[in-house]
Amino acid sequence: MLPPDHPIIPRARIGVLIINLGTPDAADTRAVRRYLAEFLSDRRVVELPKLLWQPILRGAVLTTRPKKSAHAYQQVWTDAGSPLAAVTRAQAEALKGAFGDDVLVDWAMRYGNPSIGDRLAAMKAAGCERILLAPLYPQYCAATTATANDKAFLALAGMRWQPALRTLPPYYDDPAYIDALARNVTTQLAKLDFEPDTIIASFHGMPKRTLELGDPYHCHCRKTARLLSDALGRPLNVAFQSRFGPAKWLEPATDITLEQLAAQGQRKVAVLAPGFSADCLETLEELAIRGRESFVAAGGTHFAYLPCLNDGAEGIAMLRTLLARELEGWVRAA
């Protein structure tokens, strides 16, 4: 007979933790500074020597950037919080019950809340002895996929009884992903009151040196664009957004591309962001607001931002397909 203070072991379950980049807790300077301090201190994100980078971060960057970023967040903040948190939460809700009663679906952010460590601990306490980590980055990058996995592995290092882990591979060329993108883009284009002269596929940028060091991100983005172009039956202009700092970044840059297209007489443009699984600051403020402004200022007449897959039917069906595949052997096919 067990002693009265012996912990009760819950019935064995399986966990699925979907993960996205992160968000501040509020659209104010203090919360954004706290978020940026964590984000930009990640050695996977800024690959500079700590002794060189931290004085710059704690000085110029965290003194000036939070106020500007807070203003940007205020342009897109919702009653449910940041768009990224709201959508990721909705994705997790839509997936609950998709893989059976013994599979717990939850969500976390690499930076900010809810944290990966907290949600893994909650899953373990709920009886999850096997957990699938699902960073929702279609294209692999050390600064996104790898750091999310790093954080999960670090959390496990502090556990006496560790759950078994699997990780979702990048799905940049998966037929389910390309098909979902093509269906979503086709639907969005049909809703426009104009025919775009061109379509831009804008991916988040990375310093060019990451490509030279062997990161496959650039190649994954290019292949996604090529496969999506084939599926749509029309060409796509590939560009990279969100440059930061003096380093040379992947090109061509989205903002410059928009200005050049308008100057060349291509006055009607649609922009999509196939590297993002959920709309966020970089899509809703940087592309849909500032992208439009720069395109119109350069002579463009019609601009449309096409939303991400988010928690729409195509996106959730795709996630169910990908996650069910990775759960094979742990659960029966849903």
Rank of each mutant, 00 (worst) to 15 (best):
L213K: 06
A37E: 14
A270L: 04
V46G: 01
D179Q: 13
E285P: 08
E212R: 09
F244G: 11
Y305Q: 04
L250T: 01
A85F: 14
G329S: 03
R44K: 03
V61H: 12
V271I: 15
A334Q: 12
G97S: 06
G97V: 04
M159W: 11
L21V: 12
M109Q: 09
E251K: 00
R209H: 10
L250N: 06
A142Y: 09
A31Y: 02
R160H: 01
D118K: 13
L104E: 11
Y171A: 10
A239I: 04
P196I: 13
K191H: 08
S277A: 13
K67I: 07
F194V: 14
A126H: 08
L272Q: 04
R222H: 13
Y177N: 11
G214R: 09
P235F: 00
I178D: 03
I18F: 01
K124N: 13
V16W: 01
R11I: 00
N310F: 10
L40G: 04
K248D: 12
V185A: 08
S229N: 15
T23G: 02
C221F: 04
G97I: 13
G112R: 04
H71I: 14
V185T: 13
A70G: 01
L95T: 08
A155I: 06
R110S: 03
Q54F: 13
T283R: 02
A72W: 01
I18P: 04
L309N: 04
M123E: 02
L120E: 03
A225L: 08
Q91F: 06
L154I: 13
G214L: 01
N113W: 02
G22I: 08
N113L: 05
R44H: 09
D255W: 00
A142V: 15
C280H: 10
E93K: 12
N237T: 07
S41V: 14
L322C: 05
K96L: 10
R119G: 04
V103C: 09
G315W: 04
T321L: 02
H204V: 02
L165M: 08
F99N: 01
N237G: 00
A152G: 07
V331Q: 14
D150T: 13
A125F: 14
G97P: 08
I116K: 05
Y217E: 06
L250C: 01
E314M: 13
